[in-house]
Design a protein around this nucleic acid. Sequence first.
DNA 1: TCAGTACGAAACAGTACTGTAGCGAAAAGA
DNA 2: TCTTTTCGCTACAGTACTGTTTCGTACTGA
Lengths: 192, 192
Amino acid sequence: MSSDPRALRSRAAVVRGAAELLLADGPGGVTVDAVVQRTGVARSTIYRHFPTSTDVLRAAVDAVLPEVAPGGPAAAGESPRDVLVRRVTATAEQLATGAWVRALPALLELVAREPALEAHRAEIVARHRTDLVEHLSAAADAGLLPVGTDLGLTADRLVGPLFYRRLITGEPLTPELCEQLVDSVLTPGDPR
Amino acid sequence: MSSDPRALRSRAAVVRGAAELLLADGPGGVTVDAVVQRTGVARSTIYRHFPTSTDVLRAAVDAVLPEVAPGGPAAAGESPRDVLVRRVTATAEQLATGAWVRALPALLELVAREPALEAHRAEIVARHRTDLVEHLSAAADAGLLPVGTDLGLTADRLVGPLFYRRLITGEPLTPELCEQLVDSVLTPGDPR
DNA sequence: TCAGTACGAAACAGTACTGTAGCGAAAAGA
DNA sequence: TCTTTTCGCTACAGTACTGTTTCGTACTGA
């Protein structure tokens, strides 16, 4: 709509500040006053860019959610197993990041209560998942998986325990755990 | 302290109403006013029983949390595998219950933000887990698990994907899924 | 029966947040 | 340069919630 650099600048500052507040204090911490104090952007300016404070929160979630996807770039000359280990480990590290420890439960609660975010959540999950399924498909082609394996279920068996430990039990996510998970999914009896 | 039935009655009503509000609207919905309106108990009475509104919320969580533990009674003449399937299926059904769909993210966020609840959370998880580990131990004794298997990790591999699907992807938890999970954990090549 | 106690109702100050409005100043763009 | 747009600032009404207090009523237990 507006290409005025001032508008773009202040809008970006609001979104960034709101995202920081979301990560630090959860959804309840993202108030207009808090964003004003944190960013220096005026109250009236915020309401000029966003109809309601809920839209600010939504923009903050939009700015934060994509970071979930652990970017596992394509393999080099590494084995499919190593690709999987690297990919799962990346997810584990992301889950262990301080910001996410606090933000993940808050985001889950927010998404559960805000149907408008449901589509976005589904898209993130799908991207995350298809990426992992592709790696699993390569592993299957290499004979590392039993024929006829449900790759979607296998993906859940890989990352499910990670989220479970992070969210429910609070146990640490070690690299050894990631390797054990990958190996528990691959066909037994294959050396490294 | 007080054995006056009036006091016990109104206190119980407050806790029950607060628990209902917690399940219905999340932690943010548990306000003193809301409890007053829902239960008919007077504002002054609530503050006579609880120092702050946070204590009301805590009591509500205490009243709700124990229901998490899926009661898998001891086996009859069924095989260790069937015990595991029944146990995992019970967990899946509990996760699929309407109330928990809404309450679980809220509870997680609450526990993450309220260190006082951490101990309680750990106790619930431990009870849940030792129960499952016992079943797994029986399965290991029956030769259904490779020797030297980490039973704790195995427990995570069993229920982790359930929680992951419920919380993150939102996919349904079918009985078939539970069976597949159990079989994926047991040593391959064993008939029912 | 009767004293003690818990009760419901209502009013109160204090705090925090939302959303609106009007203002002069500063920056952008022609 | 000059007009337009955006800005920050401040004040405002409205809402919601917390925690306190008072008062008359109804229940409990001896």
